[in-house]
């Protein structure tokens, strides 16, 4: 299986939505298999391939099932998150419901949030939100797809909580000193979506057109939504 690290479930109740880099400690301590292997996670890959071959040889698994599962994991895309954001920009009542309960509001748009709960945090002129998962790579995969590699990197995960403004600066965002920066560590059962500020100059835009301004990065909080250009 070429997909990274979905070899066991834990607190995610089978949602397969993070990779496993944390230290399990204790007696069965083992090195982290995934993550941070820009050079290629050779050992983990060998083990997973061997396991898959064994399962196939014993007729417990077919290769197509693996492929289908990978496809299922990789099919959600950023457009679903963008659709949620664009609706929130154009429909204040929806926005309130979204901030109160992200999962049920998303369901109104026929978007199924597979994770336990979705917490939506709103950027305003006074507050900027940034998402990370210091322990692994929890991410709202069912609405944003797979996370970018930098989100999984140890450097981002450590620095996003330790020196978040420096991280934002490297993404090209210099946050004014009077803005409150709220970092959300997605360490357990919640998943997070940033509701970015609506770009100026897009007041008359349709929901579909607005959705084109909503990037993956602005929903993680490392950038703003794209500027409106007609």
């Amino acid at each position: 299986m070429s997909h990274e690290a979905h070899e066991h479930d834990d607190h995610d109740h089978g949602d397969h939505d993070h990779d496993h880099a944390h230290d399990h400690g204790g007696k069965h301590s083992h090195p982290s298999l995934v993550i941070e292997d820009e050079a290629g996670n050779i050992e983990g890959q060998i083990m997973i391939d061997a396991l898959q071959n064994l399962l196939v040889a014993r007729n417990l698994l077919a290769h197509q099932e693996v492929t289908q599962e990978i496809e299922k994991l990789e099919s959600p895309g950023v457009h679903q998150g963008a659709k949620i954001v664009a609706r929130a920009w154009t429909d204040p009542a929806f926005k309130q419901r979204l901030l109160a309960n992200g999962k049920s509001a998303a369901a109104e748009l026929d978007i199924k949030v597979g994770e336990a709960q979705l917490v939506v945090v709103e950027n305003t002129p006074d507050t900027h939100n940034l998402i990370t998962c210091t322990l692994c790579s929890c991410y709202p995969r069912s609405i944003l797809g797979q996370p970018p590699s930098w989100y999984i990197s140890k450097a981002y995960r450590a620095r996003a909580v330790r020196e978040p403004r420096a991280v934002l600066a490297e993404f090209g965002m210099s946050l004014p000193d009077d803005v409150e920066l709220v970092v959300h560590d997605s360490n357990a059962d919640m998943r997070y979506l940033v509701l970015p500020e609506r770009p100026e100059g897009a007041e008359t835009w349709s929901e579909d057109k607005l959705a084109e301004l909503v990037t993956r990065d602005c929903m993680i909080g490392v950038s703003k939504a794209l500027p409106a250009q007609s």
């Binding site: 020196e163 978040p164 403004r165 000193d177 409150e180 920066l181 709220v182 970092v183 959300h184 560590d185």
Partner: peptide, 8 residues
């Protein structure tokens, strides 16, 4: 960072 910054 700024003194008002927080983490959840």
């Amino acid at each position: 960072g700024a003194p008002q910054d927080t983490l959840c």
